[in-house]
Nucleic acid binder design. Structure first.
Length: 270
DNA sequence: ACTTTAGCCTGTCGGC
DNA sequence: TGCCGACAGGCTAAAG
């Protein structure tokens, strides 16, 4: 399931193929994604050149003419793939962009992803309330501490809130909290500055490590060149309920926060 | 004003 | 073997 590192990897992987290429055709097979693909999108974008690719949180942004562009989200099972010749459409391919002979195909079995268009891409409502990037300088322990004053929500819910900081999904939240020694259910307002500085550090560390490996891959993610995924990151708590803690051998426990499984070490995380 | 919940989807897996 | 429910998950709108 694509998280920030996977989206970044996709962005970097696609860029050499489609930057400065002209969209010669746009085709849709299944417009019912997280939000419907806009009607008549082909007439808006055919003939346009891809001026550049960007990532914001887990959104992929394709800049087109003027300030217009495409906003793409991979949901939890989406992938983009470059094909150099027309090949039979596989199941769950919902749309494609043609660049002459080159094809960019979107596949998404669970259809939680999105393809949207705006003439003012940077003003798109979905981008309006996003918090800082986790690797940026404006995301740090002080920031988390200040946000958390007098807030009672669980700290895990805070770091997974895209309005606080973007791109931290269930996997990286669990791992970062373990590394920082913080219980996922602890009330955000009851955590001091020192521990938030540790948490900001471990968040940056896990995101950075995943980026270095080209993104953690689970099951159905395939990168933009259709290479098998990276299973590199050794997850210390995520998906390891009941197994011994890597550090103290205590069996890991799982609780549910915001309907999400949250696995942690009851001894190491307080 | 803040926080939680429901709902969107389908493939996979464990239990019976 | 096959069926069925639980679960996975980001994000928003609506409810609390």
């Amino acid at each position: 399931m694509p998280e920030l590192p996977e989206v970044e990897t996709t962005c970097l992987g696609l860029a050499p193929f489609i930057t400065n290429k002209v969209i010669t055709e746009f085709r849709v097979w299944q417009p019912a994604l997280r939000w419907p693909i806009p009607d008549h999108l082909a007439s808006c974008i055919e003939g346009d050149r891809i001026r550049g690719l960007r990532r914001r949180g887990k959104y992929l942004l394709f800049d087109l003419k003027g300030s217009s562009g495409l906003l793409i989200h991979l949901g939890m099972s989406g992938s983009l793939r470059i094909l150099t010749e027309a090949q039979p459409k596989s199941k769950h391919v919902h749309w494609q962009l043609n660049f002459g002979n080159l094809l960019l195909r979107y596949r998404d079995p669970r259809r939680f992803g999105a393809l949207l268009y705006s003439t003012q891409l940077d003003q798109h409502p979905l981008l309006g309330n996003l918090g800082p990037e986790p690797l940026a300088d404006d995301f740090d322990g002080d920031y988390l501490y200040q946000y958390s004053r007098r807030r009672k929500r669980a700290v895990k819910n805070v770091i997974m809130d895209g309005g606080v900081v973007v791109g931290i999904g269930n996997i990286y939240a669990a791992e970062a909290l373990f590394l920082a020694g913080i219980h996922p259910a602890r009330a955000a307002g009851a955590i001091g500055l020192n521990r938030y500085q540790a948490l900001a550090t471990t968040i940056k560390a896990v995101i950075h490590a995943a980026l270095q490996r080209g993104g953690t891959t689970l099951k159905d993610y395939v990168d933009s060149n259709n290479q098998p995924g990276y299973f590199g990151l050794q997850l210390k708590v995520y998906g390891r309920n009941g197994q011994p803690c890597n550090s103290c051998l205590t069996p890991l426990k799982t609780i549910r926060l915001n309907q999400r499984a949250s696995t942690y070490c009851p001894r190491c995380q307080r």
